[in-house]
Design a protein around this nucleic acid. Structure first.
Lengths: 220, 220
DNA sequence: CCGAATCCGCAGTGATACTG
DNA sequence: CAGTATCACTGCGGATTCGG
């Protein structure tokens, strides 16, 4: 299934054999936001060689993580979507992302930031305990992208697009300021975002989404 | 730091740049059990080229994940140990391992199983909620390896070697039967292990360590 | 335009031998 | 014990081309 097996009967080794190759988990990450077509993935993953993308998609489909769907009416074509097994990668992926964020400073020159990925950042930063008993709907506007966050008693649904019901609060950030989760939360804490709706809902927002700034000192 | 950066300001991308290369997370996994010397790692990771191991250890040290220590008196030499940042990889590593285990059938012919790694399996299978209010000490003998499990109110410490205090229960498994977590738990549930101590403690054992057998159907 | 396949050069890897 | 050295191999990066 992969370039070479590790030869160990171990869950981690098996996971790395399946999704340990270059670009594989980044493809899964992007598909956790929503199903995408081939060309969307080429855009979302700058620098990926197209042959590698095609190979990964085949491997992930073969492994039962990704499935090909026919795109709906307006624009026909192929949509790549995660299967149930693929979605089950999310906890591992969020944990890895949290660790990586803890090792991460401010953006390097040339690094791209895609606001759609903030849906994943919100999932990673979500504190289910702090969200016990909370029922809230937020809409976040970052540059030209709209995200929604729906919390119902410790459960979060985050995605792109407007909120499915009337949001308690609309938070607008940009067009200046990097469209990163960290920059948004710094601004929100500093009162530097524009919001509209019930102001007290901003406190809840800041409480259920933790900041996770890296600790001081050497980051490596 | 790695063969090539992904060029994205994203926690997951950063994590993969640091520990995404072949063998890296398996080295971290083994060091999560205990500090090891170079030759221990060569044995624990059958098939790893020694130049790759040397390279990875340098990269991991450079990244602040692994540190070199001088081995204590009896056998001098170098010990590789995880730093705090390395230990913080554990949640991500356990989550990946749980997913991999869910994709995993029974051992393939030729796959090795190392009983020491069951310390990691126990951490991955540990249900902190079920362990609320539980205080227990178990000792597990698998083939020629002794492990200890100490639970104190939702917190688990697992490691190799005998229990630090009088165990409530000693569970012996082997020498026949594969020394895998899954095989042990199947046997324990079926009453096919030898135990010595307070029998009622076996129920608690089975309750706080979940089985996590893969769901039926295609595993990919 | 979408969804790739093809080709080339190179860097990372695997396997083994060797050394302070 | 703790690596380094060498060399063949293959996966990857980069670009171009191609079929529906």
């Amino acid at each position: 299934m992969t370039r070479r097996d590790y030869g160990q009967y171990c869950g981690l080794a098996r996971a790395l054999e399946i999704v340990g190759e270059r670009w594989a988990l980044l493809i899964v990450r992007d598909l956790l936001v929503r199903p995408l077509r081939y060309t969307d993935l080429v855009e979302s993953l700058p620098g990926i060689p197209t042959n590698v993308l095609a190979t990964r998609l085949k491997e992930l489909e073969q492994a039962g993580i990704v499935e090909r769907r026919l795109a709906p009416a307006p624009k026909r074509g192929v949509l790549y979507a995660l299967t149930a097994a693929g979605i089950e990668l999310q906890p591992a992926l969020l944990a890895l992302g949290r660790w990586g964020a803890s090792q991460m400073g401010d953006p390097e020159p040339g690094e791209i930031i895609r606001p759609e990925l903030m849906t994943i950042s919100f999932r990673a930063a979500f504190d289910a305990r702090a969200a016990r008993g909370v029922h809230a709907v937020w809409e976040v506007h970052v540059h030209d992208v709209v995200l929604h966050l729906v919390v119902d008693d410790g459960e979060l649904v985050s995605g792109v697009g407007p909120a499915p019901r009337e949001p308690d609060l609309v938070i607008t950030f940009g067009p200046d300021g990097l469209p990163s989760y960290r920059a948004l939360m710094r601004a929100a804490r500093a009162g530097e975002v524009v919001y509209w709706g019930r102001p007290e809902s901003l406190d809840t927002f800041l409480r259920v989404f933790t900041l996770t700034e890296p600790a001081k000192g050497k980051t490596g």
